[in-house]
Simulated scan of single mutants.
Amino acid sequence: MKNLYIVGAGGCGREILNTILDIHAIQGPRWNIRGFLDDTDDPLKDKPCDYGVVGSIVDYRPEADDLLVMGIADPAAKRRLGAMLAGRGAVFETIIHPYTALGRHNSIGTGSVLFAGFSMTVNVTLGRFVTIIGSGLGHDVTIEDFATISGACNIMGKVTVEEEVFIGGNVAVAPGTTIGSRAYVCMGSMVMKDVQPGTKVMGNPAREIG
């Protein structure tokens, strides 16, 4: 059984630990959970948690039986830390909660995390290190590397979400639109047209605010 470390002990990392524990409870043990890797000062202070911080990210050196899970939601940080750790030979696991609907003829990139309540239909492509929390994807959707999609989002058919996009909770994205790389979509927005790369949008309909 491989050793499993979660990169980041913030809120996203602790939610991912919960998903891993659900997998063990429902499907049986799959990994030897070691705990968190984190570089911040006492990230679990006053937060009850089943596992602690066992080392820093910057000092971590992978061993033969180790697997990592990306427990950070920030897309740019996922790219930076993923590249650093992969350069040292680290291997990342893909985590899929048992209570997901994975559809047919879809692909899921290495290092992605799909939380409970996630669903996708057909011909969906998820890139590497994609994080999706309980949202739905329609047909022919593409989510590129390092994107994060928060809870209760509805992404319609033929949408493209480019690299390093962050989408807040309760966002709806109209069919056929493209959200450009490194864009940020604020929670509760309704995206009716393309979002330009590197911009921040909010509202119904979503408009650029930065």
Rank of each mutant, 00 (worst) to 15 (best):
A83D: 15
D140Q: 10
G89C: 10
S119M: 11
R128I: 00
G89W: 09
G127W: 02
F118L: 03
L137V: 02
L126D: 04
L85N: 04
T100H: 05
F129T: 03
L102Q: 13
M120K: 05
T131F: 13
G138H: 01
V91R: 15
V141P: 00
T125E: 14
H97I: 05
I108C: 08
T94K: 08
N123C: 03
I132E: 08
A90W: 07
R88A: 09
V141D: 02
F92D: 13
E93L: 06
G117A: 07
R79D: 08
K78H: 06
S107L: 04
D140C: 02
L81P: 00
L137M: 01
R104N: 13
M120T: 02
S112R: 04
Y99W: 10
A101I: 14
I133S: 05
L126R: 08
M120P: 04
M120I: 04
K78N: 08
V91E: 15
V141G: 02
V130A: 13
V124E: 00
H97G: 06
G109R: 13
E93A: 15
I133D: 00
F129I: 02
S107T: 15
F118W: 08
T121K: 09
S119W: 01
N106L: 09
A77Q: 09
S119D: 02
V122T: 15
D140L: 01
L81H: 01
V122P: 00
G109Y: 08
L81Q: 06
R128T: 03
N123H: 13
R80I: 11
G111V: 11
I96M: 03
A116V: 10
L85F: 07
P98S: 12
H139V: 00
G138M: 03
L102P: 12
L102G: 13
I95K: 07
G127C: 07
A90F: 05
